[in-house]
């Protein structure tokens, strides 16, 4: 049996906003569509930015990549603000439980000291690298075109700031909330040779002027490699080296990286499929940044996992690029 409540239905005079109807036809729209499409202002700008006098305040020319319609860069996750925070809220709840469990069972104390040191030396400093990721994605939010991509970029930026805080919390879970591990990790970030390449790479990305180049250097090149090194290879290494408990604390970052890659793959694919101009430009950026990444990550990858690790990570990058039609 089903029960049916009678409601009075009123016939609407239109189904959705006019710009949504022009794009998708006269039918009810999704909330993602109404929240996303054509929200960026595009016409009749008033003043020249004092900090960029040659361009308009919203200007597609802030990247060398050219799109007929920037709203082609839609998010396969269909994240607008609401679903984004609700999704991450669920993930953080899980992370919070993991951290609580880790603390309650005193799992930090059962780690052997060489593993603990390794984490402090080679994992916790990621909290600083994540700040660069936060800034590079925020840069795209501020300077990119079309809410489809700029909203996804701020979600990525806030995620990465969240990551920076989770890496810091791992430190606090290991040092009994004294913050000593974070101070030590920062020293490693600042002067340990294993990190100097990555730090130089991060600093370099922060001087990029073209926002899509920043997306390539950060979200495609560096992140693919880091994700593979930390969330696949190091994950396996921990499993084999009595570090399983630590996986609890890395789970958020691992799941998030997968989720984010669905989006960045799609952005990359749409941009390079758009035109030869775009795919050549993107290839040019990738070829520069992969050389820098190679140099940057070699000492870190060797210290973390041994000599073969970086080559494996590069193979993953290769595969990812081939999948979207980029043959380097």
């Amino acid at each position: 049996m089903t029960i049916e409540i009678k409601t009075s239905t009123m016939k609407p005079i239109r189904n959705t906003y006019a710009h949504i109807e022009r794009r998708f036809g006269d039918k009810p729209a999704t909330r993602y569509q109404e929240a996303t499409y054509d929200v960026h202002s595009t016409h009749n700008f008033h003043y020249k930015p004092l900090w960029d006098q040659d361009r308009q305040i919203n200007d597609p020319a802030r990247t060398a990549v050219v799109m007929g319609d920037w709203y082609d860069l839609k998010d396969p996750r269909q994240f607008y603000y609401g679903p984004y925070v609700q999704n991450r809220s669920k993930m953080q709840e899980n992370a919070e439980n993991n951290f609580k469990f880790f603390e309650k069972r005193g799992l930090g104390e059962s780690l052997n000291s060489s593993l603990r040191e390794k984490i402090i030396e080679l994992v916790i400093p990621m909290r600083h690298a994540e700040v660069a990721a936060n800034l590079n994605n925020m840069y795209g939010t501020a300077h990119g075109t079309g809410t489809a991509v700029t909203q996804a970029l701020i979600f990525e930026a806030m995620d990465r700031f969240g990551n920076a805080q989770y890496f810091s919390k791992i430190g606090l879970a290991l040092d009994g909330n004294t913050g000593d591990s974070l101070a030590t990790a920062k020293e490693h970030w600042m002067s340990n040779p294993a990190w100097q390449g990555v730090r130089a790479y991060c600093e370099k990305t922060l001087t990029i002027k073209d926002w899509f180049e920043a997306f390539i250097a950060q979200d495609i090149v560096l992140d693919t490699l880091i994700n593979d090194l930390y969330y696949r290879q190091f994950d396996e290494w921990l499993t084999q080296n009595n570090g399983r408990d630590l996986l609890l604390l890395m789970e958020f970052m691992q799941d998030r990286a997968k989720d984010s890659q669905r989006w960045s793959d799609s952005v990359l694919k749409v941009v390079v499929t758009e035109s030869e101009h775009n795919s050549n430009q993107v290839l040019a950026w990738i070829s520069t940044w992969r050389i820098r990444a190679q140099e940057a990550l070699e000492p870190l990858a060797s210290a973390l996992l041994g000599d073969k690790a970086l080559a494996d990570a590069f193979a993953v990058l290769e595969k990812r690029l081939t999948k979207v039609g980029l043959n380097c």
């Binding site: 900090w51 909290r127 600083h128 994540e130 700040v131 800034l135 920076a164 805080q165 810091s168 919390k169 606090l172 913050g179 974070l182 920062k186 970030w189 600042m190 100097q196 730090r199 130089a200 600093e203 370099k204 922060l206 001087t207």
Partner: peptide, 22 residues
């Protein structure tokens, strides 16, 4: 402080002004 303020660092490889030019 530990989770936020302490995340920044002094640049060594690039001029910080290039990263924060305005």
């Amino acid at each position: 402080k530990l989770l936020t303020r302490d995340l920044d660092w002094e640049f060594s490889y690039e001029d910080r002004k290039e990263a924060f030019p305005y």
